[in-house]
């Protein structure tokens, strides 16, 4: 995995602090250093894999709200799933035993790192794409994950959905991306726009925030 720059890590920090329960302007040198350490370890151990299908015909589960509103005006949809791999789960579990404080930071970093890699990967879908939307967001049902798993050969990237709709490895996501029309990746098209804790503080989940 290509090393990400220090400025990119700095840009990831608000999201990482967010996963630890802080919003916007949180920062602490000791934790910042641990974040860099954790990201470097993730670069060595994560196995990022992404699988997707593009369709201009909507599968039936996307014909209801809130998907219908999200996809309104788009010409097609990417149905996708991605993961950091099971090795990351093992590292988090191990750290929570030998150094719980680092384990908590690693857990938050892994979530943010997955988002970062997805955002980077999805650049190939063009600039007229919407923000990634996953079942569970904005009033949608987690149970809808099963439809995504029926459509994609998720076993090819090693993700399993259990009967309670948990994805394994735990640092995995599955969702949809609107293509074309008014769709744009960013705060405007984000389903969380109305209730985003970052925006309320004048920050964004993917930038350094107010500083």
């Amino acid at each position: 995995m290509q090393e990400i720059s220090l400025s990119e890590i700095a840009a990831l920090r608000p999201r990482i602090y967010g996963y630890m329960g802080y919003v916007g302007t949180a920062s602490d040198i000791q934790t910042d250093n641990m974040i860099t350490e954790c990201i470097r370890e993730l670069e060595r151990t994560a196995q990022f894999n992404y699988i997707y299908k593009y369709s201009e015909e909507l599968p039936p589960f996307l014909e209801k709200e809130p998907y219908r509103s999200y996809l309104e005006g788009s010409r097609g949809v990417i149905i996708c799933a991605m993961t950091l791999g099971i090795a990351v789960d093992r590292i988090i579990n191990r750290l929570l035993r030998i150094s719980p404080s680092k384990g908590a930071v690693m857990n938050a970093c892994a979530g943010a790192y997955l988002e970062y890699l997805c955002d980077t990967y999805e650049e190939r879908f063009g600039s007229d794409r919407g923000a990634r939307f996953c079942p569970g967001y904005g009033g949608s049902r987690t149970e809808d994950l099963k439809y995504i798993f029926e459509i994609l050969d998720t076993h090819k990237i090693g993700i399993v959905l259990n009967e309670n709709y948990f994805m394994l490895p735990s640092k995995s996501m599955a969702g949809i991306i609107a293509i074309g029309g008014n769709a744009r990746a960013g705060c405007g098209s984000c389903i969380m726009a109305g209730s985003c804790a970052y925006l309320k503080e004048g920050a964004k989940c993917f930038t350094q925030g107010k500083k």
Partner: peptide
């Protein structure tokens, strides 16, 4: 918000 989760856990440890 002066200390963060990792420090809280480190103190707990």
């Amino acid at each position: 918000g002066i200390l963060f989760l990792p420090q809280l856990i480190a103190s707990a440890e």
